[in-house]
């Protein structure tokens, strides 16, 4: 069992300015995630799931407390350093896929590798491998507008996985998918988690998704309500 800590959250608080006042989105969050976990942040809308993912993904930083990702404190990272962290170690999957509309499937998946200055040959192999993982290699030349919801989300997974990140953050990845597609997507993610030992962290309020999780963290009003270990591979704080 791998127990290497990859994400550590200590007393994390996040407040947003709302008009003249403040809204506290996260209240004193303390969590650890090990390498290779397949965990879900569960809770109703406004419970702080996405905010927490954004902080772990270094897109945002905590107002108080410390968020350490791969040994780096998010608050202390410069804009360039956090971009580098995302580029090399963190993959994102969004609810609405956020595919680049003018690029083909191939180019969308290739994008992250372009930023890493891989050679054209390396990129091609990695992109085709990633498209193979998610079973859409035959759609490489299609534009996102021509894809179904399930196919679009597969492209998003391939794009997030192509650089073989340490952490993959998925914000409501199945919210726009029907049950069949959601199942297929989660199965794909699960097998990638096993194959590549990537840490998967989901946010969801879909009950059906939860049965795939090894660990479920229940959030309510910005606080951890419950941290459930379903499978022994995961560990709590």
């Amino acid at each position: 069992m791998n127990t290497e800590k990859i994400i550590t959250l200590e007393n994390v608080v996040k407040r947003f300015k709302v008009g003249d006042g403040e809204f506290t989105a996260l209240k004193d969050i303390n969590l650890n995630f090990d390498k290779g976990e397949f965990a879900g942040l569960v809770g109703p809308s406004g419970s702080g799931k996405t905010t927490l993912l954004n902080i772990i993904g270094s897109l945002d930083s905590p107002t108080e407390g410390t968020a350490t990702v791969m040994g780096k404190s998010i608050s202390e990272l410069s804009h360039k350093e956090s971009a580098l962290l995302r580029n090399h170690h963190i993959g994102f999957i969004f609810q609405v896929y956020n595919l680049l509309p003018v690029y083909t499937v191939y180019e969308n998946v290739e994008f992250a590798l372009l930023l890493q200055n891989h050679s054209a040959e390396e990129r091609k192999k990695a992109v085709m491998d990633a498209l193979d993982w998610v079973g859409i290699a035959d759609m490489a030349n299609k534009k996102p507008a021509k894809l179904s919801g399930g196919e679009g989300q597969r492209v998003a997974i391939a794009r997030a996985m192509v650089k073989k990140p340490q952490i993959l953050l998925a914000d409501e990845p199945t919210a726009n998918l029907d049950a069949e597609n959601a199942h297929a997507i989660l199965q794909t993610m699960k097998s990638l988690n096993k194959e590549l030992d990537t840490t998967f962290l989901f946010s969801t309020h879909d009950e059906k998704v939860m049965k795939y999780m090894d660990r479920i963290i229940h959030l309510r009003d910005g606080s951890v309500e419950k941290d459930e270990i379903i499978n022994s591979k995961s560990s709590s704080k």
């Binding site: 804009h79 360039k80 971009a83 995302r86 509309p101 890493q116």
Partner: peptide, 16 residues
């Protein structure tokens, strides 16, 4: 904007 946000999420700096 969504595209710009995606670029940043994928690891581009604002300057890039």
């Amino acid at each position: 904007q969504k595209e710009i946000g995606t670029y940043m999420a994928l690891g581009m700096t604002k300057l890039q």
